[in-house]
């Protein structure tokens, strides 16, 4: 399984993601500069977290014009996997590869802490190692993670089982108190209609080693690795 991690000016989880894939999970992993257009022959492209272009104007608004985005679009059209984590998710939304948009957190503050996620759909390339309903402990760290979408499109997401993670409590109950940012329908992660592009606000790369309080992020990476082998 070969992974590519895209570096935009202002990415700051690029090395963390690379570290988990390569050093912890032993997968072949390369970096791409945002101006690259050749995705070599990677199976999965990851857009990591950070503040691409400082998140100036809007999160992801400038990064979506990077040359690599055209190649990523092509990669997705071929049915290959694309993952956006946090800022990467926002960039994929701006680029139209994933639905919805992120508003400022309802609490108007940056929030960094562990949250609980309920796995809503384990029939995707990103969640096949999880049990249906499995609760994962993974941290968030964002200022704009308040998922917003029109009512009609939300109904479509629900109907197509595109919502793969919702914020929940430790028992897996999706309750308003467990929603850290005001996201509509407690959405923490979604896939596109075809199911090969995934975005999530929580950071699985920060929860993939015993030393870092949780290893639940590995379920997501392992799902991707499983899928190909």
């Amino acid at each position: 399984m070969k992974f590519g991690v895209v570096i935009f000016p202002g990415s700051n989880c690029d090395h963390d993601t690379h570290h988990v894939l390569k050093s912890v999970l032993g997968q072949e992993t390369v970096f791409f500069w945002h101006q690259d257009t050749d995705l070599q022959d990677v199976d999965t492209v990851i857009l990591p977290g950070g503040f691409a272009y400082g998140d100036y104007l809007r999160c992801g608004a400038i990064a979506k014009f990077s040359p690599i985005l055209e190649s990523v679009r092509q990669h997705a059209q071929e049915g290959k996997l694309v993952v956006g984590i946090c800022n990467g998710f926002q960039i994929l939304q701006e680029a139209g590869l994933l639905p919805g948009v992120m508003l400022r957190n309802a609490g108007l503050k940056f929030v960094c802490r562990h949250v609980w996620l309920r796995t809503e759909n384990n029939q995707t390339p990103f969640t096949n190692a999880c049990q249906e309903g499995q609760v994962l402990k993974i941290p968030i760290a964002h200022n704009e993670g308040n998922f917003f979408i029109s009512k009609q499109e939300l109904a479509e997401l629900q109907a197509n089982q595109q919502i793969i993670f919702r914020y929940s409590d430790a028992q897996g109950d999706v309750i308003p108190e467990a929603n850290p940012n005001g996201s509509m329908d407690s959405i923490a992660g979604v896939v596109n209609r075809q199911g090969n592009v995934m975005g999530m606000m929580p950071h699985p790369e920060r929860a993939s080693e015993a030393l870092l309080s949780s290893e639940d992020g590995r379920f997501i990476f392992n799902s991707i690795i499983n899928r190909v082998h």
């Binding site: 104007l57 809007r58 608004a61 400038i62 014009f65 701006e94 919805g100 948009v101 508003l103 917003f148 979408i149 029109s150």
Partner: peptide, 8 residues
């Protein structure tokens, strides 16, 4: 194209 996100 750039300044505004037509979704919101």
């Amino acid at each position: 194209d750039v300044l505004c996100n037509p979704i919101i």
